[in-house]
Amino acid sequence: MSKNVLIVDDATVVRLLLRSVLERNGFNVVGEAANGNEAFAKYKELSPDLVTMDITMPEASGIDGLKMILGFDPQAKIIMITAIDQRKYLLEAIKSGAVDYIVKPFEDDRVISALEKALA
């Protein structure tokens, strides 16, 4: 059975692109969110198997969203997909419980293999 994914990114085009890549590879995109707060609300509502999470977003960042979701469900699987390629953010995300960290602009293969690994 295909796995359910929640895509979190403030850019509509990134959500569109990720949706197309994931659906082409057999994933089911159950929802989208544009900031950390929306991500948390959608996570509670949809209980996805995995979340892809941007960092730079208005209102609540992806790091905030990551912490909120993991506070609610410590088993949640969250992969950061962000343009920020900095040690400080990588460490904070991983320490907070992210399962992987992908730097934009992403390669489709890298995203798919990260999702498959996280869900294995």
Binding site: D10, A11, T12, V13, V14, L16, T56, T82, A83, I84, D85, Q86, R87, K88, K104, P105
Partner: peptide, 24 residues
């Protein structure tokens, strides 16, 4: 909205890449 969002995302990616160089 897709055009607007593309410019938003390219701005984000360019800005992040510059910040990454400064940070590292």
């Amino acid at each position: 909205i897709y055009v607007e969002s593309t410019i938003q995302e390219i701005g984000n990616i360019l800005a992040s890449s510059i910040a990454n160089v400064f940070a590292k």
